[in-house]
């Protein structure tokens, strides 16, 4: 009886202590989310003194019947897959290469993460200048020095080359994140495992497959999941680099702020949330993020 009473009061205390953070969470996460869902059913004017008109599912139907939305969705999925795969593989390769002692290793590591820690805007301007049609260094090298092309390609004006460039930019910009994560876990792998594998006559690929891959699996899955979420919602990098690649972030921005259609914009974010939610649930079901099973 006594213990039961004590348990009860413990639970109360726990609740009391949890309450502030719980309330804050409700205020900062749940409230905007519910408000967002609510707005998605309205034709919402910017002026809050004008009454919003309830339109039911119209915003959702408009989006789901808009070819542009599906085009953006397709581009975004391709963009996400390519950049996540590219930055992860590249990050892993560099991490494996760096996971050995050599001179100036610390300096080299700091240089590697430079693209990740520099603010987007300065990197984007640098890229825009590099690929500038008039005085860009790429066109200078390719055209005037190496004579690879007679007339300089319009890098950011052609949808295909623009897409490839934004993918390349994202891989280059974000691979250090994967690199840091992989390097940390690689350093925890016991060297004796590799030695044992070597004694058994394993090739480099077999060593990677049997020793490295299982060991880094938890980090690999986390890196992929997080990077995929971040890339799926990407806006700034692509928006500032070119206007020829309409990923979903840009489609959303154009709808919300160019047309001031807040209801429609909210419904897009609800749809995006549902898509991402399904993808994450499926991936969680298929793979255990803790890597234990």
């Amino acid at each position: 009886m006594k213990t039961k009473l004590k348990q009860k009061s413990d639970a109360k205390l726990a609740l009391a202590l949890l309450f502030p953070s719980f309330a804050l969470l409700l205020l900062l996460v749940a409230y905007p989310m519910i408000s967002n869902i609510q707005i998605s059913f309205f034709d919402q004017p910017i002026n809050p003194r004008l009454s919003a008109k309830f339109v039911g599912l119209k915003n959702f139907i408009d989006i789901l019947t808009d070819a542009e939305f599906f085009k953006s969705l397709g581009i975004t999925l391709l963009y996400t897959v390519l950049t996540v795969a590219g930055s992860t593989i590249f990050g892993l390769a560099v991490a494996i290469f760096f996971n050995r002692p050599f001179k100036f290793r610390k300096t080299a590591r700091s240089i590697i993460i430079l693209s990740y820690v520099t603010p987007s805007i300065s990197l984007i301007f640098a890229w825009k200048y590099m690929f500038n049609n008039g005085y860009g260094v790429i066109n200078y090298l390719g055209g005037d020095v190496l004579h690879l092309f007679k007339e300089a390609p319009l890098w950011f004006d052609n949808p295909v080359s623009s897409f490839l460039l934004v993918v390349l930019f994202a891989i280059w910009r974000y691979f250090p994140y994967a690199f840091i994560s992989f390097l940390a876990i690689l350093q925890t792998i016991d060297n004796t495992l590799y030695e044992a594998a070597e004694i058994d006559g394993a090739s480099a690929w077999e060593k990677f497959k049997i020793v490295t891959l299982p060991a880094i699996m938890p980090v690999l899955l986390t890196v992929i999941t997080l990077r995929a979420i971040w890339m799926f919602y990407m806006f700034t990098d692509v928006y500032l680099l070119t206007n020829k690649v309409d990923i979903l972030g840009i489609y959303l921005y154009k709808t919300a702020f160019a047309f001031n259609d807040l209801g429609k914009a909210s419904s897009i974010s609800v749809i995006l949330f549902i898509i991402l939610f399904i993808v994450i649930m499926l991936s969680r079901k298929r793979v255990n993020l803790n890597g234990n099973g």
């Binding site: 500038n132 007339e151 950011f156």
Partner: peptide
């Protein structure tokens, strides 16, 4: 000039 010319160009 070739390409998309904005204010800077």
């Amino acid at each position: 000039m070739p390409g998309s010319n904005d204010t800077t160009e």
